[in-house]
């Protein structure tokens, strides 16, 4: 029966996928625009190929440095840099978390009154929209070179990160639990302590550990603008063309980041 039907009705022999952007004009404008941008952008990149060619030699030396990293000749500097970076990481995370908690609570619309909410959100926005590096530059100018400026920078960055996520967590909590506590006639502090803290605590610990991770990674950078830490050591090594020492420092950074990630993953699992 169907065989008969099939010979009667003719079916199309071609099919093409419906385009992602339906409107033809818009589609071609977007594709054309993207193409034009790409061509202009790539052609505006000025490359000094002679310099690149010469640099390949250095690149090779750098790779060699990675194969035979030199930990010994700058070991003293590396230890001081690492010590600064690690202590900076710990202190800034602790201080940052301590400040983030009240600000995070204040930035949660469901428990904070409007004026407090506005102020706390403003602090969060301020901290988030400034690059760590730029903050570091300002703090170095104000507080002088060294890890103290770095500590302040990382604490400041931690506030924006942690307070925002904490506030979002508090806003997402199960309202019925807080409601139940409120129904018992509890005060504001009791509501926070019994209705909200148990719900956000595991996440807060997880986020703090994650931030510890990030702070270490950042601490290796801000040294470039004078805020202490292993970044400063690395910068010096690069300036002196000591690629084998630089490779050693980079490898240490990678190893510590890996270890920190592994450990924080472990602790987070243990907390939850």
């Amino acid at each position: 029966m169907t065989a008969v039907a099939a010979t009667e009705t003719r079916f199309a022999q071609t099919w093409s996928r419906p385009p992602f952007i339906k409107r033809r004009g818009l589609r071609w404008t977007l594709y054309g625009g993207a193409l034009v941008y790409l061509i202009t952008a790539i052609s505006s990149v000025e490359v000094n190929w002679v310099r690149v060619w010469e640099g390949l030699d250095r690149g090779l030396r750098f790779i060699k440095g990675f194969l035979v990293p030199d930990f010994t000749s700058r070991w003293g500097d590396i230890v001081i840099g690492m010590q600064e970076s690690l202590t900076m990481t710990v202190t800034s995370t602790v201080v940052g978390v301590a400040i983030s908690v009240p600000i995070g609570i204040g930035a949660a619309r469901n428990i904070a009154p409007l004026p407090v909410y506005a102020v706390c959100r403003a602090i969060v926005a301020l901290s988030r929209s400034f690059q760590e590096i730029i903050v570091a530059i300002l703090f170095v100018v104000m507080f002088g070179f060294g890890p103290f400026a770095g500590f302040l920078t990382l604490s400041f960055a931690t506030i924006g990160f942690l307070a925002k996520l904490l506030a979002e967590d508090i806003e997402d909590i199960d309202e019925s639990q807080a409601e139940a506590i409120r129904a018992t006639g509890a005060g504001w502090w009791q509501i926070v302590n019994y209705g909200i803290q148990p719900q956000v605590m595991p996440r807060l610990i997880g986020l703090s550990l994650y931030r510890l991770d990030i702070n270490f990674r950042e601490s290796s950078v801000i040294g470039i603008v004078g805020a202490g830490g292993i970044g400063a050591t690395l910068n010096t090594a690069m300036d002196r063309y000591e690629y084998d020492s630089a490779a050693a420092i980079l490898m240490l950074i990678i190893v510590i980041v890996m270890a920190a990630e592994y450990l924080s993953g472990f602790v987070r699992k243990w907390v939850q």
Binding site: V45, E46, V47, N48, R51, V52, E54, G55, L56, R58, G59, F62, I133, R217, E218, S220, V221, I224, G231, L234, N235, M238, Y241, A246, L250, I253, I254, V257, M258, E261
Partner: peptide, 25 residues
Amino acid sequence: IVSSRSINSLIWALLLVAIIGPGVL
């Protein structure tokens, strides 16, 4: 993945400026 993630872009830039010279590339 972990090597790329551990090293901040500013440090990558520091290395690359030394190797292929300063500039947009």
